[in-house]
């Protein structure tokens, strides 16, 4: 089988899913317009010439961003595993489960100590 066929199939499925979701949302979704909806979206911040509190962002954005970076970058290690997944077999699976467990320990710490609370 031509190796490009699965790629094409995945592409078709992806495109189909996107088209389906957008189409269904347009047909079935409620249509209410208000001021907040027509404003520019800026990562959850009130879009204003100056940030709240005299030009500086509150430190809680910083905390969330840091947590995001740390957990996000761990994904890098899943790529080499994904490439050699079938050759590594059970060994690779076990090692990856251990790796993800350690990340979860860090996540539990952040969650329990209030790192994810916004206010």
């Amino acid at each position: 089988m031509n190796p490009y066929i699965p790629i094409l199939v995945i592409g078709a499925i992806g495109f189909g899913f996107a088209a389906f979701s957008v189409g269904v949302a347009a047909i079935t979704g409620p249509k209410r317009y208000n001021r907040a909806k027509s404003e520019a979206y800026e990562c959850g911040i009130q879009p204003s010439p100056q940030a709240a509190g005299g030009g500086r962002f509150p430190v809680k954005y910083f905390l969330t961003a840091m947590l995001f970076i740390v957990f996000d970058i761990e994904i890098v290690f899943l790529y080499p595993w994904a490439v050699t997944f079938d050759k590594l077999g059970l060994f690779g699976l076990v090692e990856m489960v251990i790796f993800i467990l350690t990340v979860f320990v860090a996540y539990a710490y952040v969650w329990r100590r209030g790192g994810l609370e916004w206010d």
């Binding site: 430190v59 910083f62 840091m66 970076i69 740390v70 970058i73 761990e74 890098v76 290690f77 790529y79 080499p80």
Partner: peptide, 27 residues
Amino acid sequence: QIASFFTMVVAACEVVVGLAIIVTMYR
């Protein structure tokens, strides 16, 4: 290329630790 993967991850961790120290200092 594997080395650059590790460098990226380590650099991200360094960012987090470093900015935490700098922010405490600033406060």
